[in-house]
Every structure is written in C-alpha cells, then in structure tokens.
Design a binder for these strands. Structure first.
Lengths: 232, 232
DNA sequence: ATCCGACTTTGCGCCGGCGCAAACTCTGCG
DNA sequence: CGCAGAGTTTGCGCCGGCGCAAAGTCGGAT
C-alpha cells in the first residue's frame, strides 16, 4: 500500500504528461496506492466524494442501480484514466459505483488536491476537460443509439466500443481484455442477457465472434461494424 | 447587433457571478450579440467550433441527426446557460447542432477567449465544471431511463425535466415555456410521435395535463411523478 | 472428488409499441 | 378569404424482444 512508486508509472499518462520528474514525485508522494481484488468496490454510489482516482492497472467499471434493482453500466475505465472525478464537477457525493472487474491497482488523492493539480499546470486541466469531453461524446452516442437503433445494433456498438478501448490482438482476432459476461453486455446495451446470448450464438455461427465463458473475441470486426450501422 | 449591452444582463448569471462591474464590461465588449429567429440554426454539427455562446433570452435546443435522418434531441438550453462549449473540451468541431426554438438573443465569443476567461477568475472555471457535471448527470439519468424504463416512464421523465427547467406557473398548472410538439417529445424520449400523442391524450383525459398545439401544461405534477417511477 | 453456484443456452408465448394509413384541425401566408 | 402545410389524433395489424422456464456447462471452493 505504501511501497514507493516509480515516477515512470504515471509520467507517460496523459493527465500528467509534460511534467518534470520532481513534480511527478511530489504528486506521487501525496497519493495512496490500493490493490482491489476482482469484484470489490472502489467507491459506492451516494457516498461522500472524498477522493479522486487514477487506474494504474486492471479494469474498473462505473455503474448505477435503479430503484428496482436493475444495474446499468455507465462507463468502462481502462488503465491510465482518471475516475471518480465527481468532486471536480462540484458534486459532493459519487453519482455511481466503481467496481474492480479484474484485479486492479488504483492511486487515490484527497479531493482538496484537485484544485492544486488544476492550478499547478494547465496540462492537467486541459487533459481533464478533454477526457470529460470524450465521455460526454460517448454518452451522447449511446443516447442516440438507444433512441434510434434496434437491439442488434446496440449490442454491436457496445462490443465495438469495448474492442476499441480494451481490445488485445490474438491469433484468432481481437479479444476483450477483461472478464465480461452476457449479463454485463446486456447492462451496457439496455437489454436482457437472453437476447445477448441468442445474438452472440448467432454471430458465433456466422464466424463473426468466438466466445467462451466470460471471454469474447471478435474475429471479424468489419462484419460487426456493418451490423452496427442502422439498417436502412 | 452591436448595441451597448447592460452589465446587469450577465452579472447575475452563474458563470459570471462575483465579478466586478468593470470586469463584466470588458467581457461584454469582447462579445458579439445576435438575434436568432425561431427555427434558425445557431451553429451546425460538424462545423468548425470557432465560438462559444451564452443564451441571454429565448430557448435553444441541441440535437443530432443520425445517418438515416432521424433527429435526437440531446439537450434543452434555458436562458442564462453557456452552450457550444465544445472547444473547451478539446473538440475542433461542434458535436451537435444548436437551433433556436423560439426567438433568442445570444452572446458569442471567439474560442481563444475561453482560456482567458478560465484563467482570469476561477469562478468561471468552477461554474463551467459544475454545469458540465450537471449535464453529465442528466445524460446518465437519461441513459438509465432508456435502458430500464418503459415508454410511458421515459415520456413522463422528459416532461418533468422540461417543467423543472423551463416551467412557468399559470392558473391551471405549470406550462412549458416554449413551443414544443409531440414530435419533439418523441425525439427526447426515443419513441414516435404517435405513441406520445396517444399517451398525452390519455393523460389529458385523466386530468394530468392540458395541451394545445405546440403547448403543454402540466396540471398535476405529482401524478406525473408517480407515472415516472419505474413500475414494480 | 464432489458439490454448489455462476454462467450460458434454448424454447415458447405473449404484448407493447412501431409502421402504416387516413382523417381532422389549426395557423400563417399569399 | 382560402389554401397549403404543419401538427395532431386514432385505428389496425404485425413482430421484435422480453418474461418465464428448464436444462446444460463450467469453474472454483470445500
């Protein structure tokens, strides 16, 4: 938890790009490092937003639960990204729950340092705005999808987003980097695990994807892109 | 277009709150003021993001068009809010189209001033982050709605959002401040004008709303809130 | 080795909401 | 004053996708 971290770990990451080594050292010295086992909660929805985070390694998922217990996955966080930045947006409590999907290493800072980081170098502010803009775009895309497209397109798009963000090339195709279930895909695309299962089976028969338990590999990304287009 | 604007117009608005009169004067002197007739475009999707805007009066809508021509309304902008702040998010082109729904008065600044405003006083930065956070929240709420709720709930929620944002009290109830069609509501809730029409008719029979052409008045907001809850 | 729980597959039947269509009404413009 | 066009209402039939159900499979824990 308090082993001394190497500056290189975060110097290369966008939020801290262009900083001198001693600056990074100072930032790291303020951080606490935590290991989260798969399935454990990093922070919970509606609790006080006391800290903000950087995902060093692993995979974290932001999700919310509706009044009647249905989960919706809002955002998948790949390594190298800031998350839990609610305090920066003037929120006093976290709007969602963050869960480690696979074993993850996380850096955390107390919120009061946010203003300091923002002031110390505008690179940080600029990159944060950029990340925010990116997420805003993603959200808008998703809203448009859900408003206009059929289930098949929504699932294709969700899968493509995952591949772009966390894809890893293998012999047979591009596999998704972290464990993912049909249920998860359903929660991302606003449908049920049954429908996802049926479609994945169909795609597997068609040779577009291959999947095992908690693992999906996209064999023919191009075919998937075609499926993702709205049908005329 | 270049009549001298009164400082009071924007001193009270959140983004510029807490500024001295001469600071506001300087900001105003950099702005150009434009009148947009109902139905005209303030800026178009995918064009260069050269300016950012403040809505002084009227009503503006942010929307996008899908490849096959369906519109989706992403955001309704009430008077007093900044909009078209894409450049702040590192975007070079606008991600959506902004259209004046009713006659609107808009202030515009060239993007290069964004950094200046941000630097000159942190109130501006803080408020911008806050607005961004608010929109992010709204977007997330909407995604969750679309993923988990039936059409009736989505339309109720859309209506409630409009009432909260742009409601005006009248003798019979709370009316929405700007012209709005069934088609518009459909584009906000991801459904068709037919379904919206049917539901509004039903609600009108039940005494929950009253509506004329391009105008909706919510008579019993509480009933609508009940309808908006996910059905157990 | 065995058991339990989590994950997945597949079938069946129903129904909410969309597509299509037609008629009606209001408003603004020529 | 009348017409054109935009907005609204309503009916009808179909079907994609969900709910429910049951069984199969895999992996990890005891």
């Amino acid at each position: 938890m308090t082993q001394r971290l190497d500056e290189c770990l975060i110097m290369a990451l966008p939020p801290f790009a262009g900083l001198a080594r001693d600056q990074v050292r100072a930032i790291l010295d303020e951080a606490t490092s935590h290991r989260h086992a798969a399935g454990t909660t990093v922070f919970a929805e509606a609790t006080s937003a006391l800290r903000f985070f950087l995902l060093l390694d692993g995979h974290v998922r932001a999700q919310r639960i509706t009044p009647n217990g249905e989960q919706v996955i809002l955002h998948e966080i790949p390594p190298g990204e800031l998350f839990g930045i609610a305090p920066a947006l003037g929120l006093l409590i976290y709007p969602a729950t963050a869960i480690a999907v696979s074993e993850s290493i996380v850096l955390a800072w107390p919120v009061r340092l946010w203003a300091v980081f923002m002031a110390q170098h505008d690179g940080f502010a600029r990159q944060t705005f950029r990340t925010l803009g990116q997420r805003m775009q993603d959200n808008n895309d998703r809203i448009i999808e859900m408003a206009t497209q059929a289930v098949e397109q929504r699932i294709s798009n969700a899968l493509l987003r995952l591949v772009n963000q966390s894809g890893r090339k293998t012999a047979v195709g591009i596999e998704i980097n972290f464990p993912i279930t049909r249920q998860d895909l359903a929660e991302m695309s606003g449908t049920t695990l049954h429908t996802v299962s049926r479609l994945l089976s169909a795609w597997e028969k068609a040779g577009i994807v291959q999947s095992e338990r908690k693992k999906i590999t996209v064999v023919q990304p191009h075919q998937l892109v075609l499926l993702a287009q709205p049908q005329p």
